[in-house]
């Protein structure tokens, strides 16, 4: 099983794993090491005392170092293509997919929108997204509880993303594990619905600490619930004083304007940065051509 690339354990839609595909990041496939995993057949401690030829090997490597390398690759890809990538995280049932569908409906005529859908099983969510008019690829993590940067890197190969747009990565519904895995996104956005407890930021602090924005979703239901919005926001700020809070209802559209404005601004910044980079490269090319001409 492999939770690093999702192959074997998870799968990417339309991604055939019976062939030995080339690895885009230049790394051998992790699950190949584990292909011959034989439980209970490992060597026993049999060497005689005093005959040990043990030596120490210094490693000093971050356990998440590999994921972070893939994340850096993804981040570079996003920058080169002027993409604003957001990683949407929440518990299951917070309304992530409905929010995505609504967001796409409101944005798709203004800018390119694409989605990476993470779930343990099924392509139901990607089907819903495609029906709303955006390009989507489903990543099934199998037993995995989160998306990692390697899976997202694979997914990008299947999306043919247009430059200067929005990429929304819908993570597996889980408020714990996805917090530790950088996917290369610009921001993590945590979605909390008011049908959950207002104390979730305290119960699952890692996620609220890792996020830059909290969407408080389903606010149309507030009249029917005992959910204390101010208390929830106070708890969230206790964990993360810089967390920006947006109150929305994907169903009624209430509060969606601010969310869309935040996304659009992100795309504008990513687009401008790419344009600036292109201009710098053009300038550099022109300088080099002048140098070449002088030599010729």
């Amino acid at each position: 099983m492999c939770s690093v690339c999702g192959c074997g354990q998870g799968e990417i839609e339309g991604h055939d794993h019976t062939h030995s595909h080339e690895h885009p990041h230049g790394e051998p496939h992790y699950h190949e090491h584990l292909g011959g995993l034989h439980y209970g057949l490992g060597p026993a401690h049999a060497h005689a005392p005093g005959l040990s030829q043990e030596r120490m090997v210094r490693i000093e490597q971050d356990i998440l170092g590999k994921n972070n390398t893939y994340a850096a690759d993804n981040r570079r890809y996003f920058a080169e293509h002027g993409l604003f990538a957001v990683n949407l995280v929440s518990s299951p049932g917070s309304g992530k997919t409905t929010l995505l569908v609504k967001t796409i409906a409101l944005l798709k005529d203004k800018l390119p929108v694409a989605v990476v859908e993470g779930d343990q099983q099924t392509s139901m969510d990607a089907d819903r997204i495609r029906a709303s008019g955006a390009a989507a690829v489903q990543v099934n993590t199998g037993k995995g509880c989160h998306l990692d940067a390697h899976m997202v890197g694979h997914a990008l190969e299947h999306l043919n993303l247009a430059n200067d747009g929005l990429l929304m990565i819908e993570n597996v519904g889980n408020l714990v594990c996805p917090s530790a895995f950088d996917l290369g996104e610009a921001h993590k956005v945590v979605i909390l619905s008011v049908t959950e407890g207002e104390d979730k930021p305290l119960k699952y602090p890692d996620m609220f600490h890792a996020a830059d924005v909290m969407l408080l979703n389903k606010i149309d239901l507030l009249p029917y619930l005992a959910f204390d919005v101010d208390q929830c926001v106070e708890y969230a700020h206790r964990i993360n004083p810089k967390l920006e809070v947006l109150k929305v209802s994907a169903t009624t559209g209430e509060g969606m304007e601010r969310w869309l404005a935040w996304l659009t601004e992100g795309v504008d910044v990513a687009t401008a940065a790419r344009q600036q980079n292109v201009n710098l490269l053009k300038k550099r090319i022109a300088e080099l051509e002048v140098q070449l001409a002088a030599k010729g």
Partner: peptide, 17 residues
């Protein structure tokens, strides 16, 4: 959290070495 992924990453580091 996600200790299984971490364990697999640790094994990968060991096998690379």
């Amino acid at each position: 959290m996600h200790e299984m992924s971490l364990a697999e990453s640790i094994l990968q580091i060991v096998e690379d070495a």
